[in-house]
């Protein structure tokens, strides 16, 4: 198990960081150095002012009101997934630093309860979102549109979320943020070590598998359609040109 964790949750993370950040930089460089379309591709209604365009860009990218109007079900699930993913990301920041204020307000037990609830809700929403997408893609009338990349990404995402949920629901009361933080900070300071507490319980298997899927997902991220995470800003801005 120790080897598994060293591969997935130490060296794998370093490799992933290099591939992910390098890949995203490469992707952005490629977009930035390709000349813009000579034709203005905007559509109407089109805000006249720069501020209006910026506001519309934010609304279109973060809320996608037009998509909500045409397929509300998809929008609700997609929105739930993305908001939950953002919540989960914010929650994971505890790996680097405990939140300010919150622990003082809530106390240690209160903080654990809060983390359990918020983490559980986010974890369930993400799981539901991924399952919905798998079903919609597999059984929808337009399933022929899907290519293996779509299923691969959903599979990796399902692995990340399922194992994250496993850690949350099975070991949430056993291993707390401080232990994970010890491990993660050791990575960030380039003195990697795996705390004995992670090895002692079976949480190591969950963590290792959670990280395995995360490594694979993030390494593939810059080369997959997931680059919509940054590309959507640019393409939505063009809508107002």
């Amino acid at each position: 198990m120790e080897t598994y964790l060293w591969i997935t949750s130490v060296w794998g993370i370093y490799l992933t960081a290099i591939v992910f950040f390098g890949g995203m930089a490469w992707r952005i460089y490629q977009w930035a150095t390709t000349p813009k379309s000579p034709v203005r591709l905007g559509m109407f209604p089109k805000p006249k002012s720069g501020a209006g365009r910026f506001g519309k860009l934010l609304a279109d990218t973060f809320i996608a009101p037009q998509s909500a109007k045409i397929e509300p079900t998809m929008w609700i699930f997609a929105m739930a997934f993305h908001v939950a993913a953002l919540g989960a990301f914010v929650g994971h920041l505890r790996l680097i630093h405990e939140f300010p204020f919150l622990p003082e307000w809530l106390g240690e037990a209160g903080m654990n309860t809060f983390a359990a609830w918020s983490g559980s809700i986010a974890g369930i929403l993400m799981l539901v979102g991924v399952l919905f997408w798998i079903v919609r893609r597999t059984f929808g009338p337009y399933k022929s549109l899907s290519v293996p990349e779509d299923y691969l990404l959903l599979f990796l995402l399902l692995g990340v979320v399922a194992m994250g949920d496993h850690m949350r629901f099975v070991y949430g009361g056993v291993v707390h943020a401080a232990t994970y933080r010890e491990w993660f900070l050791s990575l960030m300071t380039f003195k990697p070590e795996i705390p004995a507490e992670l090895l002692a319980s079976n949480v190591g298997v969950s963590l290792g598998t959670h990280m395995l899927f995360t490594d694979l997902l993030l390494m593939y991220f810059p080369f997959s359609k997931l680059v919509h995470a940054i590309g959507a800003f640019s393409s939505n801005l063009v809508r107002s040109e």
Binding site: T34, L145, G231, S235
Partner: peptide, 20 residues
């Protein structure tokens, strides 16, 4: 090839919201 075409090629999630 231009930036918009490249992005359209790279980012489509095949979500099929366009179907309706």
């Amino acid at each position: 090839m231009n930036r918009q075409l490249k992005q359209y090629m790279d980012i489509c999630a095949r979500c099929a919201i366009c179907k309706d």
